[in-house]
């Protein structure tokens, strides 16, 4: 399946520059694992940065740094990484590939069957994911087949990466590997496609604004 909704140039530029906070970076990196074309776009961003490195006004390092570096190199143990040939590729395994790609799988400590979901009510579940950027709120969401995420708008940016199943939003289908970027201007109501629960990674930097008064009341309890 080809990814149809790729990460924006804006986010990709921040990823390439190394300025994305951990939570956003987790979503973009996991998306990139599933989206070869987006990785080719990333390569262009990095090549552009490489070209700017060529063109930068050089700054002389302090003192005779080459002598220092030379000494450091001579004194270090031969690096096993640089001398060992790359390991032969593993034999194709009969086990099916994991649903959750790296780096997400390591953050959750396992693949989908190992997860301990917490209920959000109305058949929806989530698993909060710890990051240390102090900026983002990251969770894995499971929306029941055919059911909507309650209609909401956003205080800030929201990234939703589909990992399993799919959802419809504003007339578009988002399936495995697709990423949806929403900002404060968008009010939407994603609906999971019937037939299969939709599992997605959701990253936000501000609480969602639900239309429903009831949801607004319980929101603090759910932490979303």
């Amino acid at each position: 399946m080809t990814v149809r909704h790729e990460v924006s140039d804006e986010l990709l530029a921040s990823y390439a520059a190394g300025t994305l906070a951990e939570g956003w970076r987790l979503a973009v990196a996991t998306h990139l694992a599933l989206a070869p074309h987006a990785r080719r776009r990333l390569a262009l961003f990095e090549k552009t940065a490489g070209q700017m490195l060529e063109d930068i006004q050089p700054e002389a390092p302090a003192g005779d740094v080459w002598v220092k570096i030379r000494a450091k190199i001579d004194n270090q143990q031969p690096s096993p990484v640089s001398t060992m040939p790359r390991a032969a590729p593993e034999k194709p395994s009969l086990a099916p590939a994991p649903v959750l790609p790296e780096p997400l799988r390591s953050y959750l400590g396992g693949d989908v069957m190992d997860l301990k979901w917490r209920t959000l009510g109305r058949g929806a579940y989530h698993i909060p994911i710890r990051t240390e950027d102090g900026e983002t709120n990251v969770r894995l969401l499971r929306i029941p087949a055919g059911k909507p995420v309650p209609e909401h708008s956003h205080g800030g940016r929201e990234l939703t990466l589909v990992l399993s199943g799919s959802f419809q939003d504003s007339g578009e289908l988002f399936a495995r590997g697709d990423i949806e970027e929403a900002d404060a201007t968008l009010t939407h109501q994603p609906i999971a496609t019937p037939g299969e629960d939709c599992i997605c990674l959701a990253v936000t930097d501000a609480p969602l604004r639900f239309k429903s008064m009831l949801l607004r009341l319980v929101q603090p309890l759910l932490g979303i």
Binding site: G18, L32, R39, E102, P103, R105
Partner: peptide, 26 residues
Amino acid sequence: RNLRIDAYRKNRRPDFDPDDPAFVPD
């Protein structure tokens, strides 16, 4: 860039892994 993120960000630097069985090759 990566060394800098590792040195100055206390948090992790999540990255995709081309050797992961779930990785979709080009």
